[in-house]
């Protein structure tokens, strides 16, 4: 079982595909769940704290807006520990979205910089394309073993 970072990191569909194919998806949901479950943190709605935003400095400098650093602090550690990643380009908001395009770009860059295997797929426009995407994903994840 490999740790797979998914992008958009809050995509339930990508999460489900990776899990069904026997791997561990690294997602925003998991990152936020850890924070929400921690009763000592009271920073609703997502329990992203000032310390998190400061720890985001590992990924982007102080001149970078706080919202980007907070986002990178949330899933940056997952990028660091991932064995591979699946990135879906041009996905609609309902598929998964993190709100900030600069953060999206930085996530893709961090993945490239790590040099781990990454599957780049386009959002499927119809059923056939979706089947092809699933096949490619299956093949990619299978090849990681």
């Amino acid at each position: 079982m490999k740790k797979i970072f998914i992008d958009p990191p809050n995509s339930m569909i990508l999460f489900d595909i990776v899990e069904r194919l026997g791997h561990e998806p690294l997602s925003t949901m998991a990152a936020l769940q850890e924070r929400v479950d921690n009763l000592e943190i009271d920073m609703p709605p997502m329990n992203v704290t000032l310390d998190d935003v400061i720890s985001g400095l590992k990924y982007a400098g102080i001149e970078v807006p706080s919202g980007i650093r907070g986002r990178l602090a949330t899933w940056g550690p997952h990028i660091d520990e991932a064995d591979a990643a699946i990135v879906m380009a041009e996905a609609p908001y309902s598929f998964g979205c993190v709100g900030c395009e600069r953060s999206n770009e930085m996530v893709k860059y961090l993945l490239r910089r790590r040099g781990i295997p990454v599957l780049w797929v386009e959002y499927p426009g119809d059923k056939e394309a979706a089947m092809r995407m699933l096949e490619k994903t299956k093949e990619f994840l299978g090849g990681l073993e």
């Binding site: 609703p44 992203v48 000032l50 998190d52 935003v53 807006p65 706080s66 980007i68 650093r69 907070g70």
Partner: peptide
């Protein structure tokens, strides 16, 4: 707004 929940300022 944009970014408040990831900047730890929404509750403020």
């Amino acid at each position: 707004s944009c970014g408040t929940e990831y900047s730890s300022v929404q509750s403020e």
